[in-house]
Amino acid sequence: MNKNTYCKRKGIILRNDSKRFIALTFDDGPSPYTLEILKILKTLQVKATFFILGESLDKYPGILQAIVEDGHSVANHTMNHPDITQISRDVLLEEIHTLNTELKKSAVQDIRFFRPPYGAINEETYQILHELGIIPVLWDIDTNDWDLSQEDQIEDRVMDGIRGEKEYKIILMHDGGGPRERTVQALPRVIEKLKQKGYQFLTMPEYFYHVYNIKS
């Protein structure tokens, strides 16, 4: 779901802000790669949002605390990574509530944001999320960092993605779900290039405030 669709449904007027905003988001973790990513983010003084996958959290429960202690935002990416448009309402509620319960034990955050696996969402699932008070979040720039067959550089995909008039973007990367060495290697270059372009890095709650004027 893009920003214009979300805003139209909510009756929200986008803020007219001249600043450039980037929301770095990482899916499918936590994993050992998350710890490497956290080191880079701390060194470069950047905050991000981690869309946590329940089955990954079960394997690496201690890493969630490291994410939170470093001041990053955490959000829901389901327990088992299903296509939510292909499951029942009851299964979707279980996927969300089970993970939210686990996240709140350590995160001490209000888990308001949700990323549907594969970016799959329809009217029915949107309405369920809306009833729960959960905000679905997709992305503007897909780095395709999961696809190890691609020969071009991840940072080049990001720089191609920021072209255009819109000065606010959500970037999709991955800290779990497979080998993420290329993501870890590319991340410092991605951050430095975006900083050179004047982008300010925001967590998802900050992003929704600055772009939508919504406090969450």
Rank of each mutant, 00 (worst) to 15 (best):
Thr78Tyr: 14
Asp142Trp: 06
Tyr207Thr: 03
Ala120Cys: 10
Phe21Ala: 01
Ile40Gln: 08
Val184Tyr: 07
Leu172Met: 05
Ile191Trp: 13
Leu148Trp: 14
Arg20Gln: 11
Lys166Met: 04
Asp110Pro: 05
Gln196Ile: 06
Ser149Gln: 07
Glu69Val: 09
Tyr126Asn: 00
Asp140Thr: 04
Gly29Phe: 12
Ser149His: 07
Ile135Thr: 03
Pro136Phe: 13
Gly198Val: 13
Asn213His: 10
Leu57Gly: 01
His174Phe: 08
Phe201Glu: 06
Glu36Ser: 09
Leu202Tyr: 07
Thr203Phe: 12
Arg15Ser: 03
Glu55Lys: 15
Arg20Ile: 09
Asn100Gly: 03
Pro117Arg: 13
Met159Gly: 03
Leu138Cys: 02
Asn76Lys: 08
Leu53Ile: 05
Ala186Asp: 07
Pro30Thr: 07
Leu187Gln: 03
Arg180Ile: 03
Glu55His: 11
His174Pro: 00
Gln109His: 08
Gln86Cys: 02
Phe51Met: 01
Pro205Gly: 06
Ile141Gln: 01
Leu35Trp: 10
Ser56Gly: 03
Tyr60Asn: 02
Asp27His: 08
Met173Phe: 14
Phe51Cys: 00
Tyr118Ile: 09
Glu124Gly: 09
Arg189Thr: 14
Thr125Gln: 04
Asn213Asp: 15
Tyr168Lys: 05
Lys8Phe: 14
Arg89Glu: 15
Asn16Trp: 09
Leu129Lys: 14
Thr25Lys: 09
Asp58Phe: 14
Lys47Tyr: 14
Lys10Glu: 11
Pro32Ala: 08
Met173Tyr: 13
Leu38Gln: 04
Ile22Phe: 06
His77Tyr: 07
Val184Trp: 14
Val190Pro: 00
Arg189Ile: 13
Phe208Ser: 04
Asp147Cys: 06
Arg163His: 05
Lys195Phe: 05
Glu131Val: 02
Leu44Phe: 11
Asp175Phe: 10
Arg182Glu: 04
Lys105Gly: 02
Thr25Trp: 13
Trp146Met: 13
Leu53Thr: 09
Ile84Phe: 02
Met173Trp: 13
Ile170Pro: 10
Glu55Val: 14
Leu92Thr: 00
Ser88Ile: 10
Asn76Arg: 12
Leu99Ala: 05
Leu194Val: 08
Ile63Met: 05
Ile84Cys: 02
Asp90Thr: 09
Leu41Trp: 11
Thr183Leu: 04
Lys39Gln: 08
Ile121Phe: 12
Ile63Glu: 03
Glu181Met: 14
Glu155Asn: 07
Lys195Thr: 04
Asp27Val: 14
Phe114His: 11
Asn76Tyr: 12
Trp139Ile: 04
Asn100Cys: 08
Ile12Ser: 02
Gly71Met: 06
Arg163Glu: 12
Cys7Gly: 01
Glu102Lys: 15
Ser88Arg: 08
Gly164Lys: 07
Gln109Cys: 02
Thr143Ser: 15
Arg20Pro: 01
Asn80Tyr: 05
Lys39Tyr: 04
Val137Gly: 08
Ala186Thr: 11
Met173Gln: 14
Leu38Ser: 01
Asp28Ala: 06
Gln150Tyr: 11
Gly161Phe: 05
Glu131Gln: 07
Glu167Met: 04
Glu192Arg: 12
Asp142Ala: 07
Pro188Met: 02
Cys7Met: 09
Ala66Asp: 11
Gln86Ile: 00
Phe26Lys: 01
His174Trp: 06
Ile121Lys: 11
